[in-house]
Nucleic acid binder design. Structure first.
Lengths: 103, 103
DNA sequence: CTCATCCGTAAGCCGATACTAACCGTTAGT
DNA sequence: ACTAACGGTTAGTATCGGCTTACGGATGAG
């Protein structure tokens, strides 16, 4: 994937979040994905491009159909990225975090 | 925080990513944050509101200064959210491979 | 070959949002 | 009380981004 930062932008849109959620359960073709979504198939295709460029999904071609699934590696990269921030934030404020209402 | 989804939107902007990165290293006042950023203090203040509403930062007042820091709980919520997707994608991937192969 | 299916892309519209400038309330120091 | 420092808010503008429509390329069935 490009980097974890583009991943946040990719998941910032509600429609893409919905697409991503459905893909995380099982692989789907573009047309299948478009059914049940309040947008056209064209919009879905554009969203899939964003998710793919961010490294969050991969696709394979089966005849005329393009089937997408979530790429666990991309998700792991974002999770690990956040984990570094989490640890860094904890390290610089170890004292305050223990007192819930200090801030 | 509101939910993990608003967190992604909050971190989708490059300027907010930069703000968040600097805050994760140490707590900073708004003015300190604005120095070294290519935008005005006003813009920084607006970005901080978005990050705060998303539960990613918290603030405390010290005289006339408002000091912000990263909230580890908000970061952990997003990380855990991604972790669920990661596990789900792995399980789904495993199922797909069993009935078809070669992605 | 013909035709239908499937999907990506281009153009354009329109709402969302990141930004600056200006203003105002609060606090601290003299 | 006056003034300066600090920062949140508003108004206005410009750019960005998600959407639809229309189109074109690729594959498969007949």
């Amino acid at each position: 994937m490009a980097n974890a930062l583009t991943g946040f932008a990719a998941l910032s849109d509600p429609t893409r979040q919905q697409i991503f959620d459905r893909l995380s359960r099982r692989a789907l073709a573009v047309g299948e994905l478009a059914e049940g979504l309040p947008v056209t198939r064209s919009a879905v295709s554009q969203h899939l491009k964003v998710l793919k460029d961010a490294g969050l999904v991969v696709s394979r071609t089966e005849g005329t159909r393009n089937i997408y699934r979530v790429d666990p590696k991309g998700v792991a990269a974002m999770r690990d990225y956040l984990d570094r921030f989490w640890q860094r934030a904890l390290a610089s404020f170890k004292d305050e975090v223990e007192r819930e209402d200090a801030w």
